[in-house]
Design a protein around this nucleic acid. Structure first.
Lengths: 227, 227
DNA sequence: GGCGCGGATTGATTTCGATCAAAGGAAACC
DNA sequence: GGTTTCCTTTGATCGAAATCAATCCGCGCC
């Protein structure tokens, strides 16, 4: 970790728009902002490891964080990729004392850091905060259930198509997307090896998907939906 | 659905011990019990379908409920198997108006049914209820994240071994377990086809696992942990 | 604008689990 | 208790993705 600071006004602006904060009124928002500290990590830094005692949770301001597990051979599997606005480890507000997965900066990141105990106390007194946390938890739960279902039901090209469709504008027949992160990270997010992602992209070429670095052109959105 | 009734005293006793209720004090408990209705379903009955408007959530009193998704070919994948004490669809207390997956009775089940709007109102006024729901959500979230990690990291025999280890007493070197449900349901829960579960069991034979119907003998718990 | 590095792609092979098909066995029903 | 039905197991084959290895190329750096 690099430094711990009070949030600057740019960070505050980002934080205020995150799902966990956006629903808060004036007073609750101020209370939460008061508890937030800005921290930053370099690419590949480990934020915390599975089993460590958990004191804080985070909300991403910029960059991406990888949440992952290890099997006993040391192989890694991503559980979630958190980008700007995503919070993680907030579920520990109401559970056991230890982190349940590893967190690593996938690139340089800035985060808002919250003390679990202090937020717990704030939530006790402030129903709005409590409700915002619940909403975040409920959203994460559904997202994670989606993830299980997708892993179990969809092939690699289907997962990629689904990702592309959720990250391009709804209207129009064509679209172009700039991936917000490395393909290897996307592969992990989709539960694929990088090679499998690459092959999935080339399968999707016949459905009108063109890839050039991080730039992805979709010529026919409806065709993608048929995959 | 068969019938809707006030809970009888046996059902109440079960409900009171479920994770979502166990932490409640006298008053909160009474409030929740007052909102609960007993319902029962026959094996294979559909409780609700993905996309339907959601008015209620459930807590299992007896039997097992399958939460699952369909892909567009009609293939099914289980997301979660809910047994006695498990609640499901409570995440909709704080989210969109529709169910996000299908729910089916895997066998004859009895459930406590809760009106979402009424519980929402009760949670507004009662921090204890609100906290109990949060705990349930947080627990489900972690469980589901575990599920993603296991799917992505573990082979079929490893998943089965893991299941056996979590459902047998911690102490001792040997154990015997009676599966609480059909093997096909276990297969779905572990994200496997029934044939794959069967083969996983026969792989585990060399690790001292003997299967006879629903009865499973584990001769060496430590050997299982090495799988 | 060229150089070099790390991520990305492509190919070959292997492995794991799904699927299809058929036989064996357990449990429910009469 | 016997019969019937559905579940489970076993075998054979297929397919998808992981893995290993080598090349390619985009990107950051100088």
């Amino acid at each position: 970790m690099n430094k711990v600071l009070r949030l600057n006004s740019r960070d505050k602006n980002i934080l205020v728009k995150t799902p966990i904060m956006a629903s808060l009124g004036q007073a609750s928002l101020a209370r939460m902002l008061d508890l937030a500290a800005a921290v930053s990590f370099e690419a590949r830094d480990i934020l915390f490891r599975e089993g460590e005692h958990a004191d804080v949770f985070y909300c991403v301001l910029s960059g991406y964080v990888r949440l992952y597990r290890l099997n006993k051979d040391g192989r890694e599997a991503d559980i979630r990729i958190c980008g700007p606005g995503d919070s993680f480890a907030e579920c520990l507000l109401y559970l056991g004392p230890n982190y349940r997965y590893n967190a690593q900066a996938a690139e340089g990141v800035t985060l808002a850091r919250f003390d679990l105990a202090k937020v717990r106390a704030a939530a006790e007194q402030d129903v709005e905060i409590s409700r915002a946390i619940m909403q975040a938890l409920a959203t994460h739960l559904l997202t994670t259930m989606d993830c299980v279902a997708n892993d179990r039901l969809q092939t690699a090209p289907q997962r990629v198509a689904h990702f592309l469709l959720t990250s391009c504008p709804k209207e129009g027949t064509s679209a172009s997307i700039r991936l917000p992160f490395q393909k290897s990270l996307l592969a992990g997010k989709l539960g694929l090896a990088p090679e499998a992602l690459s092959r999935a992209f080339s399968t999707l070429r016949r459905a009108g998907v063109t890839v050039r670095g991080r730039l992805i052109q979709i010529s026919d959105i409806n065709a993608l939906k048929q995959i």
